[in-house]
């Protein structure tokens, strides 16, 4: 059996199996640590930094840090909350996130985090970068305007032989997601749907699909992201 260890998050006593990543350990203790590039079942990357917490006074990403005995974790202090808010605002100004015209609106994790943090307007000037929509794939549309470069599609989507279908191309501020032209043509409907679901924003869309859930019934219309974790009732043994 795994060794059970004790630690605290914002003063709350928590328990988890040793070696578990902090976000997962927090989730099991009913505490929500916001994430964006992290996805259950995929090796964590720690690239978006939204899950930043203070571990024993030092800033660390909760998705890549394994929990250890007697760790003192700060999650909800104003400094960290403001830091996360800044990161989310930067995502909004760095790309072209026109929520009213987006198929993923209401189901988008970036938008949901902005709602949770009640961001009324970003503090930074909008960059309005020039980015392309790639509709050459028979199953998927890729809108680089909305991509936040979290690499979830690269890390999480493989064909039946285990080959990756998505990859980074170009460098620096011109970096974008590319779909393998050969493997991309052979995409199954399920894999295309999985790619759309794994994308936290609306950068990967299944063709001829969108706006299929009415406003008011979408994932984040009524309850904020993390609500299910914070209100999860731990079953009594």
């Amino acid at each position: 059996m795994n060794q059970i260890i004790r630690f605290t998050i914002d003063g709350t006593e928590c328990m988890a199996a040793k070696g578990q990543y902090l976000v997962d350990a927090a989730r099991e203790n009913g505490i929500f640590i916001p994430t964006l590039c992290n996805y259950p079942g995929i090796k964590p990357k720690g690239s978006c930094r939204v899950c930043t917490v203070k571990v024993n006074g030092r800033l660390m990403t909760a998705c890549t840090t394994p929990v250890a005995e007697s760790m003192v974790i700060e999650n909800l202090c104003p400094e960290i909350e403001n830091l996360r808010k800044q990161i989310i605002e930067l995502f909004f100004v760095e790309g072209n996130h026109f929520c009213p015209a987006c198929e993923k609106s209401g189901q988008c994790e970036l938008q949901a985090l902005a709602y949770r943090y009640k961001i009324m307007a970003p503090r930074y000037p909008f960059a309005f970068p020039q980015r392309e929509v790639d509709a050459s794939n028979p199953k998927l549309i890729k809108d680089q305007n909305r991509c936040i470069l979290c690499k979830r599609c690269i890390r999480g989507i493989h064909d039946e032989k285990g080959r990756t279908i998505f990859a980074y191309k170009r460098r620096s501020n011109r970096v974008e997601i590319g779909i393998d032209p050969k493997l991309g043509k052979e995409l199954s409907d399920e894999t295309a749907q999985k790619a759309m679901d794994i994308c936290p924003v609306g950068a990967l869309l299944v063709r001829e699909k969108g706006f299929d859930i009415p406003i008011g019934e979408r994932k984040y219309d009524k309850t904020p992201i993390g609500h299910d974790i914070e209100h999860h009732k731990i079953p009594t043994p």
């Binding site: 026109f98 009213p100 009324m120 970003p122 909008f126």
Partner: peptide, 18 residues
Amino acid sequence: VSVGECAIMGGLPAMRNG
């Protein structure tokens, strides 16, 4: 007071920005 997405981030008219 900026009311609405267009006032806040340009909105749909700003789709011409690229």
